[in-house]
């Protein structure tokens, strides 16, 4: 699995990258939507992008819309990772083209469950401190 984590918080990127690595992913990171689009242009196309909502320069919703306008990027699944929990935001993200939505805070188990729902193969690599919590 190749995963892209898009979040303006380095600490949140670190948490997600650690979880995804434990699930067998190769992880790249971007601090905003625009930088993430630049990574997609270079390739390879990730299997999944985990995207924060509120970011400077280009927010998560703008990133999702931009990705879905490019047919060659459509195979990439997109999971919003956000503190926005109301129905309006979830519907808005799914309508823009996100495939899944997970609220902060989350556990490793919750991320794994969402990836499996998307049909993305994961493997559990046991490391120090890997007890199912992020």
């Amino acid at each position: 699995m190749i995963a892209l984590v898009v979040d303006d918080s380095r600490s949140m990127r670190s948490i997600l990258a650690r979880i995804l690595t434990q699930l067998g992913a190769q992880v790249s990171q971007a601090g905003d939507g625009k930088s993430a689009l630049a990574l997609l242009e270079v390739g390879p196309l990730p299997d999944i992008a985990l995207v924060d909502w509120h970011m400077p320069i280009m927010d998560g919703l703008q990133f999702v819309s931009a990705v879905r306008r490019r047919p060659e990027w459509r195979p990439m699944a997109i999971m919003m990772v956000s503190t926005e929990s109301d129905q309006h935001h979830i519907v808005q993200a799914l309508a823009a083209g996100a495939n899944e939505y997970i609220m902060k805070p989350f556990t490793k188990d919750a991320v794994q469950e969402k990836l499996e729902l998307l049909g993305i193969a994961v493997m559990n690599i046991q490391t120090k401190g890997n007890q199912g919590e992020s």
């Binding site: 918080s9 109301d86 805070p105």
Partner: peptide
């Protein structure tokens, strides 16, 4: 941000969160 987002969820929608 995460604590603020979870507290915001307790208020009637719509509410917005700053950075």
């Amino acid at each position: 941000n995460i604590i603020g987002g979870n507290i915001k969820a307790l208020f009637p929608s719509p509410c917005n969160l700053s950075l």
